[in-house]
Amino acid sequence: MLGRANPMLPMICGIERVKRETHDTFTFELTPPCDYSFAPGQFNMLYVFGVGEVAISVSGDPSKKEALVHTIRAVGSVTKAICKLKGGGSVGVRGAFGSDWQIDKAVGKDVVLVAGGIGLAPLRPVIYHILANRAEFGRVSVLYGTRTTGDLVFRREIEQWRGRFDLDFEVTVDTASADWRGDVGFVTTLIRKASFDPLETVAMLCGPEIMMRFSIAELKKLGLTSEQIFVSMERNMKCAVGFCGHCQFGPAFVCRDGPVFRLDHLEPLFGKHEI
């Protein structure tokens, strides 16, 4: 968090570059505020002039201080407004907020990242960190599923990652067009094919709750415990600092205690209806 007296006041950040990822998803490179830093998994509140604020995870490289990167899917009024902004414009930024993926707990272990849709964005900083410190980790698998081939983000980068011998990057789509030669099916189907030692593995999950629920069931069948599984939660957020009450999940404030939780800290409520 920035050292500011009023946690509700945004800093203004210029938009350096906008990259179109898919028909509705864009990656924004912002000039970061002074002394800005974040840990993989943390998020910012992005403010669009006159429209509102939205919580978005940082999708960039934590070691690169010169750019603050967000990947945003236009689904609500604020995200739609952000996605209309162009290089040279600006947004308000508050952050970084929340918990991170605690990558240090995965050192010396196999790592499985399971991402659904835009859920790959909050996990991308983990991939950057692991690849920059590759020797510290065991086998590393990234399992990525989207609805259609048209929803795949970071395509060029994924192609590069898939060319590496020290990273197993698997992609599947729910429904494929005729020219797709890759896997078809839910991301859970990739979990079985991945190679990792269930006793010495840390799994990090980000995507729709239903996708995380089925992934957890699959990982547990293979022997992982809740203490080995980290999930990133999404809830309505207005303040990001524990004042507005909107993001509560049982006793947790997702903004402050999350968004990343070790699964056993969310149980027994995780997966229950209307929490």
């Binding site: 006159g50 604020e53 207005k238 507005c244």
Partner: peptide
Amino acid sequence: CFCSTVEDVTDLKGHAAERWRKWD
């Protein structure tokens, strides 16, 4: 009870904006 929401408003020309916090 302390919960709140926020509301964004602009002037008619869209040149000035305000952000308000309200009980929710």
